[in-house]
Structures are given as C-alpha cells and as structure tokens.
Design a binder for these strands. Structure first.
Lengths: 205, 205
DNA sequence: CTAGTGACCATTTTCGTCAATGGTCACAAT
DNA sequence: ATTGTGACCATTGACGAAAATGGTCACTAG
C-alpha cells in the first residue's frame, strides 16, 4: 500500500498558481523547440526567472512536467475530434470524421510538431495517465457515436454494445496511438477511408 | 538505372552450394543465440571453418545473411498459417484460424525466439524483401479465403474484391507486422477474436 | 579456372573519464 | 507560514581515443 501501479508522475503544491502556469508555458515552448531530452529543468527555471529548486515545489519530477505538456497536446487533438463529430449529422458521418480527424491531427502533430509528437509517443509507450485518458476519451466518443447510430436504426443492435465498441476501437488503435501511428504514416490517406468503410459495413443492420 | 529502390541485400556466387547452406545454418544458430548485432561475420566464418573473406563469395553483406535468416523465419510462420487454413472447412473458419495462427506464431516468436523476432521486426521496419514477400503472401492467402467465401455465398459480393481484401489486410496489419505486433502483445488473446468477429460481420452478405 | 585467404582500409562500436543533469534539503527572507 | 534559493549528491550523458567490425582485393594453391 503506497506505490502507484505504473509510474505516475504527479504534481504537487497548489494546483492553481501563476508559477505553475508559467512553468507549463515555458515547458511547452522549450519542449516543442528543443525537445524533452535537450531541455533541462534549469533551462525552464531560467526562462521563468526562478531557481531550479522552486520548480520542484510544483512538479514531482521532470517527467511530471512532460506529462502536463503531453496532456495539453492530446487535449487539443481530442478537441478537434469533438468538433468534427459535432459538425457531422449522421452517425456514419460522425464516425468517418472522427477517424479521419484523429489520423489527420495525429499526422499533423508528427510533421509539424515533431518534438511534441515524440513526447506523446513516449507517453503512450509508457502508459502514462495522459495517454490513457486520451485513449479512454476516444473510446467514450466512439461509444456515443455507436449508441446514437443504434438508436437511430442506422447501426445493427444484435452485437453487445461493449463488444462492438471494443472491436472498432481495436481497428482504430494503430492510428490513434501515437506510438503506432508513426509506422502507418504512409497510410494516412487511405486507411481511415478504407477502414471506415469496413467498420460501417460491419455496423450495418 | 542501376540502383535498387530500397536496400536489397543480395546473395552472390552459386545459388546451390554446401558452403552457402553451412553459412545459413551457422547464422541461424548464432543469430538466434547471440542476436544479429552481437554476431560478427568472423564468428560465422570460424564456425564453418573458413575465412571471413570466403563468406563474401556467397553473400553480398552481413545484412544479406540476416535477410536469409529472416526469410526462413517468416516462411515457417507462413507454413503454419497455410496449414491452419487448410485444416478449416468454411471460409469464415479459415479466416479465423488464419488470423489466430498469425498472431500466435508471431507472439511465439517474440517470447521464444526473441533474437529472431528482432531481426524480423527490423526487416519489416526497413522494408526488406523478406518482409515484403511475407506480407504479400499473407495477402494472397487472404484473397483466396475471401474469394472462396464469396463463391460459396458466405460473404457479400457488392464491394470490389480488392477493396475488401485491402481493408481486411489493414485490420490485420498491426498483428501481422512484427514491427507493430510488439506493441499489441497484451491483446494477443482478444484482438484476433474480436477483430475476426468484426471483419466477418462486415463480410456478411 | 576454382577454391580460398591474409592483409588492409574506412567506418562503427566500445570504453573510460569527466562535466552536466535530475533531484533533495537545510536554510534565508518576508 | 509562505516564497524562494544555493549548495550538495548520485546518476546519466557527452566526448574522444582505442579496439573491433564490415567489407574489398590482390594474391596463392592446386
């Protein structure tokens, strides 16, 4: 009773604090520019005009700061997906846009903010909370879309909801998970289309 | 006009030769025991009682030897899949077994012959011919299964065959490709089942 | 002509060293 | 009590020299 199951970088000290926000801001700038490894905690301290030691009043470790940045990055992607889903009308279209947006923002992160992408990939590989809750949120959105499709009669209702969602989630995983996406970048165009078609065929009543 | 598109390790000298076979044999033993990187060409030479230079009469490079071993490994997996498919009766069952066997033998390689698995993963990552023809062969087998299913009326026939096969191939990719399989080892049990169900639902007439 | 090799070179890998980094803590200022 | 820091330690990373490795080639033996 004491150890967390899998390395959980935590923050400490006051949750709302201008210094905490300054740290995050500086970290975002430095990490995205120089990368996580090449940025030292001292760099961040200098950037906000405090000593290195003071940073540790707000974050448990350097990793915890990385976590915060990663969570922010992934939140942006989630937001884009939520917007895309909200814009679509039918459940089928919602699913298509969800998948497409997910892959596009992921690939965009890879090509335009490579350093941040690397953090996200590492996070996913280590099973950090930020990556976990990201995957969880994706699944929630997916569940909502599928349920809506079932209610409107657009999707079949024989298979248990959980099972359907789980299977579809497995199909998307290689493109949702930053760790795996990098091996499928050449499929960014076709995979979401082809796989959406296949999934929607499987969802047909 | 001369360069091959992507690094293609080739062999040279007589194709059938006892020394060539001895090299492959020694390489298989050494690679699987010490790994590709930790095995030197001199080690192989010593093992078969010839000089290092002689090895290069039969193989273009060390990588080419790795390729040969990799091809052998992947052939074994293909053979297992072909056996599994032949054993099954219905196209649906053929597909299920194909997927399951693929994942099982892949995971088996990872857990029991890790060093050989690493070579296969590297091969897949670099797009070596051995990995390519492995993927191609999988696709051929899959095509055959789907076509059989269509002919027997078990699978739908509206979607173009190529499109169907391509999409199903994309679904299996993360578990077929050694490079990606290692990130999905915790899903070895459920993924083939869940995904087979989904795919078969999508193939229903 | 075929089977086979030692000596050689350019590039990698290994390894030991030392500075840099992540992280802590006792303490100072307000 | 809160805000903040310099000094300190164990571990890690960078760096250059030295050793090992992949690969070639002129050459020998039969």
């Amino acid at each position: 009773m004491s150890e967390n199951e899998s390395s959980v970088p935590q923050s400490r000290g006051p949750a709302e604090h201008s210094v905490r926000e300054q740290i995050v801001e500086a970290a975002e700038a430095h990490f995205s520019h120089y990368g996580y490894e090449k940025t030292t905690v001292s760099d961040l301290a200098k950037a906000i005009g405090f000593s290195k030691a003071y940073i540790y009043k707000f974050f448990d470790s350097k990793q915890a700061i990385g976590e915060a940045i990663c969570a922010k990055t992934l939140s942006t992607m989630i937001a884009a997906v939520e917007r895309a889903v909200a814009d679509a009308t039918t459940p089928s279209e919602k699913f298509r846009r969800m998948f497409k947006t997910l892959v596009e923002t992921g690939a965009g992160l890879f090509f335009n903010e490579r350093k941040l992408y690397d953090i996200a990939a590492y996070s996913a590989g280590e099973g950090w909370p930020s990556a976990r809750s990201y995957c969880e949120r994706i699944r929630e959105i997916l569940t909502e879309v599928v349920r809506e499709g079932r209610e409107s009669g657009e999707f079949e209702r024989k298979t248990p909801l959980d099972e359907t969602v789980h299977a579809v989630d497995l199909v998307m995983q290689p493109y949702v998970n930053p760790l795996q996406l990098q091996y499928n970048l050449d499929l960014v165009e076709e995979a979401p289309v082809q796989l959406s078609n296949l999934v929607l065929r499987s969802l047909a009543p």
